[in-house]
Design a protein around this nucleic acid. Structure first.
Length: 188
DNA sequence: CACAGGATATACT
DNA sequence: GTATATCCTGTGA
């Protein structure tokens, strides 16, 4: 049983906290999502805020699809599109607890330390092999697999990372006490 | 801790 | 057309 379009066809603020603890695999490689951030259509920090462009096109598409963008000219970042078709809302996946395909992650990342394999949006994409090729693909079909949490995760929320606009909004969600977060997160 | 690296969008001239 | 800011990470001080 995988999460489908129905799950994502709701407000990003409802979907984001529910994704923490779910399992994301790309071509069989991945793990438990331990950290996400929400971006909605009224959010000045969101790529979709300024309207449709060739880069953010997927964000305006139907929910339940991937939006992959290049950050700082170097890294890829993976977002899961939410809300209704045509309204740019997405969850940025920031960190995973690696559970599947550790060897392939180590190969791609050139690192052994599990804690650093997927702690951060760019690292996570490198470890899972996510690039612009996956931009716009549906999340309920290969290479993606997405499973709901087996046990309820304890969620903490706090301010988002690496932005200057709307930096005070507590739209970052993480699993309490996880050592796989990109940065420590205390409840706010 | 500072900073390079360099795609993309936006705000200027 | 040119400048500046950005949803980041690795490296070297």
């Amino acid at each position: 049983m995988t999460l489908t379009g129905e799950f994502f066809a709701r407000s990003v603020h409802d979907v984001a906290p529910e994704l923490v603890g779910s399992t994301l695999l790309v071509d069989g490689v991945g793990g438990r999502i331990v950290e996400v951030e929400a971006y909605d259509h009224e959010d000045p920090a969101s790529h979709g805020y300024g309207g449709l462009t060739s880069r953010n096109r997927s964000m305006f598409g139907p929910p339940g699809h991937a939006y992959v963008y290049r950050s700082y000219g170097i890294h890829w970042c993976l977002n899961l599109v939410c809300g209704e078709d045509g309204v740019p809302e997405a969850v940025l996946v920031r960190a995973l607890e690696p559970t599947h395909g550790l060897d392939r992650m180590r190969e791609r990342r050139g690192l052994d330390e599990p804690r650093l394999l997927c702690a951060g949006p760019g690292r996570l994409c490198q470890a899972l092999g996510v690039t612009g090729e996956q931009d716009g693909l549906p999340l309920d079909e290969p290479p993606f697999e997405l499973y709901p949490p087996e046990t309820g995760a304890q969620i903490v929320r706090g301010p988002r990372v690496g932005i200057s606009r709307a930096a005070d909004l507590p739209w970052r969600y993480g699993e309490a006490g996880s050592r796989f977060l990109s940065r420590a997160l205390r409840s706010a």
